[in-house]
Computed example of a mutant assay.
Amino acid sequence: MSNRGEQILLKQSTVLMFAVAIAGIVTGFISGSQSILFDGFFSLIATFIKVLMLITAQLIAKESNQRFQFGFWHLEPMVLLIEGSFLLLIAIYAFLNGVFGIINGGREIELGLVILYAAVFTVIEFGYYFWVRRKNRTLKSTLIQFDNISWLVDAMLSVGLLISFLTALALTHQGYAQWAAYVDPAILIVLALSMLAPAFKILKPALRDVLGIAPDALDDKVREALEIASARHGFEGYKTYVQKHGRARFIEIHIVLPSGYPLTSVKTLDALRKEIAELLGKADSARWLTISFTGDRRWIA
């Protein structure tokens, strides 16, 4: 994966999202629409998250040092955890704001301005989302993948705003202006609920990585490879440990060789390591693999 390409996309995404945020906040204040204002503040928070993602991508590209001897991979799930948490908190805030708006009798807003805003940004945000998704098929970046979720969420918000404001306009023209006032807070509630799924989609894997929970798929893959190697070479036993931090995968394998195993030189062990590594799939810079051998089972207890 090209880290340079990843950073370029993150920079573009950050600048464009900041522009969307400013437009949303300004439009929200002028029109009096709390839902547009919410959309703007969501975009502003997303901008700050994108800055963190860009910094993380730059750190990951650097070599490890004495303080961070395994590199900076651990920062990736931490940033995603922050993003997911912000999405969840802003969704809760929006929901409560919408409920109180309905209780207080709704809000009068400038429909012409907000309809124009929602229509323009629906096109921009969906267009950018699909363009980035196509670019990431080559990059295969986890940061870009989750960063792009914010564009999908923002695009969905804009579609919801457009449909709802057109509904409010129709109600006004039909002589039901008193009901049109409830559209803005109602949108806020719907938008808040629609953001819960994307928030949990980001939070779940990020939280697993931060807590150090062993990824099931990787654990199964390592055990399957060791079963094959054991059947071929008659290992007396083995112990495996796996952990994942963002795109980095840490694999530790300890193998017990049987008494009298034909060990002619260190090259024999290196050949075993190479065979097991190939069983685990193609190696890359994000895979940390340690394989050790012993003749005493107590070392793996």
Rank of each mutant, 00 (worst) to 15 (best):
residue 62 K to M: 09
residue 83 E to Q: 13
residue 26 V to H: 11
residue 41 F to M: 15
residue 71 G to C: 05
residue 59 L to A: 01
residue 23 A to V: 06
residue 9 L to V: 10
residue 38 F to N: 01
residue 26 V to I: 12
residue 32 G to D: 10
residue 96 L to H: 10
residue 50 K to E: 09
residue 58 Q to P: 04
residue 12 Q to T: 06
residue 96 L to C: 02
residue 27 T to P: 08
residue 84 G to Q: 00
residue 30 I to K: 01
residue 98 G to H: 01
residue 18 F to N: 11
residue 25 I to G: 11
residue 80 L to Y: 07
residue 7 Q to M: 08
residue 23 A to L: 14
residue 67 R to G: 10
residue 47 T to A: 08
residue 99 V to W: 08
residue 62 K to Y: 13
residue 24 G to C: 04
residue 40 G to D: 00
residue 36 I to W: 01
residue 44 L to K: 04
residue 97 N to V: 14
residue 15 V to P: 02
residue 96 L to I: 11
residue 79 V to E: 05
residue 42 F to Q: 10
residue 22 I to L: 14
residue 7 Q to T: 13
residue 73 W to T: 07
residue 52 L to M: 13
residue 57 A to F: 10
residue 16 L to V: 14
residue 31 S to K: 09
residue 29 F to T: 02
residue 41 F to H: 15
residue 98 G to V: 06
residue 16 L to E: 12
residue 13 S to C: 12
residue 85 S to R: 00
residue 91 A to D: 05
residue 36 I to V: 13
residue 17 M to I: 12
residue 17 M to E: 14
residue 37 L to N: 04
residue 23 A to E: 12
residue 48 F to M: 14
residue 39 D to Y: 14
residue 21 A to R: 00
residue 7 Q to F: 07
residue 42 F to L: 10
residue 59 L to C: 02
residue 60 I to T: 12
residue 91 A to H: 04
residue 48 F to G: 15
residue 38 F to A: 10
residue 79 V to Q: 02
residue 78 M to P: 02
residue 22 I to H: 02
residue 65 N to A: 04
residue 91 A to I: 07
residue 55 I to D: 01
residue 90 I to T: 15
